[in-house]
Simulated scan of single mutants.
Amino acid sequence: MDKLIQITAGRGPSECNWVVAQVLKAFIIDLKDHKITHTIIQKEQAGVTAVQSVILSLSGKELDAFLSNWIGTIQWIGKSPYRTYHKRKNWFIKLQELPQVATTSFHEKDVKYQAMRSTGPGGQNVNKVNSAVRATHIPTGIQCVAMDSRSQHQNKKLALQRLKARLQTHHLELLKEQAVSKWEQHLRVERGNPIRIFEGRDFKHQKKNKSYASKRQALKNDLKNESWD
């Protein structure tokens, strides 16, 4: 079963958007290493080298096992790439699974066709013959019109093609709306006990240390210096 994954900075500052972009690169490399295909459905850029939020669709074997090492809070340890003298060195983002949006199976039997009189230039034949076609997808009410050709049959084919494309766009819009809703529920990313830790400008992956006692004071200092932009 395919999975929908969102990587988000929540309401984190610009540094967190930079971290999202770096995590996205590392995540895609890991996907390829595990032969998992991905499609970026939606990406909210926050500058040339920063991303506020991105949604990916994943397809492959053993996705649950793969994602068990990624889903959760992700930490980056490093100096701000934007504010040289900023004291904070710990930055957090979130990688989460989104519930699937129910899709409406497309069947041509659910499409209603209506002949129309073409309008505009094209000669007397275009204006007099009902060659244009409106295609309506009954379950959703989405419509498309084609009047490119003098042939009603050809216009019917064009209307159907456009209807399929519009339904696909409609589905992507539902995914985006869902992502926004999910993002608003997680405006502040949970900090502490990260599933993955990266450090340095080269974004080197640090194996998770089961003991976080040594990091607690550093995290407390960062929280004191934290400034959400």
Score class of each variant (00 low, 15 high):
residue 28 I to F: 02
residue 68 S to M: 02
residue 192 G to Q: 09
residue 63 L to W: 02
residue 165 A to H: 11
residue 199 E to P: 03
residue 154 Q to G: 12
residue 112 K to A: 12
residue 27 F to T: 05
residue 210 K to I: 13
residue 175 L to Q: 11
residue 96 Q to F: 06
residue 25 K to L: 11
residue 110 D to E: 10
residue 229 D to K: 12
residue 94 K to D: 10
residue 61 K to V: 12
residue 10 G to P: 04
residue 130 N to E: 15
residue 126 V to C: 08
residue 18 W to R: 06
residue 47 G to I: 05
residue 202 D to A: 10
residue 121 P to G: 12
residue 117 R to V: 11
residue 9 A to Y: 00
residue 43 K to R: 12
residue 47 G to W: 10
residue 18 W to D: 06
residue 120 G to F: 00
residue 72 G to R: 03
residue 98 L to N: 04
residue 3 K to N: 08
residue 11 R to F: 06
residue 86 H to E: 12
residue 224 K to F: 07
residue 180 V to Q: 07
residue 182 K to L: 11
residue 17 N to M: 14
residue 58 L to A: 13
residue 176 K to P: 00
residue 100 Q to V: 06
residue 177 E to R: 09
residue 51 V to N: 02
residue 106 F to T: 05
residue 2 D to Q: 10
residue 6 Q to E: 15
residue 218 A to L: 11
residue 132 A to S: 04
residue 186 H to W: 12
residue 74 I to K: 00
residue 99 P to F: 00
residue 183 W to D: 13
residue 55 I to H: 00
residue 112 K to M: 06
residue 51 V to G: 02
residue 167 L to Q: 08
residue 60 G to D: 03
residue 47 G to F: 07
residue 53 S to G: 03
residue 222 D to I: 09
residue 177 E to M: 14
residue 46 A to I: 01
residue 82 Y to D: 04
residue 32 K to L: 09
residue 119 T to D: 01
residue 118 S to K: 01
residue 152 Q to N: 06
residue 6 Q to P: 08
residue 169 T to E: 14
residue 134 R to M: 08
residue 55 I to W: 00
residue 144 C to G: 01
residue 44 E to Q: 08
residue 122 G to F: 11
residue 214 S to A: 11
residue 70 W to C: 03
residue 40 I to D: 01
residue 135 A to T: 05
residue 118 S to D: 01
residue 170 H to I: 02
residue 173 E to H: 09
residue 11 R to N: 15
residue 10 G to D: 04
residue 77 I to K: 11
residue 184 E to Q: 15
residue 139 P to C: 08
residue 137 H to E: 02
residue 92 F to L: 07
residue 72 G to A: 02
residue 96 Q to Y: 04
residue 169 T to L: 07
residue 20 V to W: 03
residue 213 A to N: 07
residue 218 A to Q: 13
residue 143 Q to T: 10
residue 202 D to L: 13
residue 105 S to T: 13
residue 172 L to C: 05
residue 148 D to Y: 01
residue 111 V to N: 05
residue 26 A to P: 01
residue 15 E to M: 07
residue 100 Q to G: 04
residue 203 F to C: 12
residue 90 N to P: 01
residue 60 G to T: 04
residue 189 V to Y: 02
residue 122 G to V: 13
residue 42 Q to V: 11
residue 103 T to W: 05
residue 166 R to C: 01
residue 85 Y to H: 15
residue 192 G to D: 10
residue 123 G to Q: 08
residue 105 S to N: 08
residue 153 H to I: 15
residue 199 E to D: 07
residue 138 I to M: 09
residue 50 A to Q: 03
residue 198 F to R: 09
residue 105 S to Y: 07
residue 57 S to F: 06
residue 163 L to E: 07
residue 211 S to V: 09
residue 113 Y to W: 02
residue 78 G to P: 04
residue 103 T to Q: 12
residue 35 K to A: 12
residue 58 L to D: 08
residue 49 T to I: 14
residue 33 D to K: 12
residue 179 A to N: 02
residue 123 G to F: 08
residue 229 D to W: 07
residue 174 L to D: 13
residue 209 N to D: 12
residue 77 I to F: 06
residue 53 S to C: 13
residue 122 G to L: 15
residue 9 A to M: 03
residue 2 D to R: 15
residue 68 S to Q: 06
residue 206 Q to P: 02
residue 181 S to D: 13
residue 221 N to D: 13
residue 132 A to I: 00
residue 35 K to H: 08
residue 211 S to R: 05
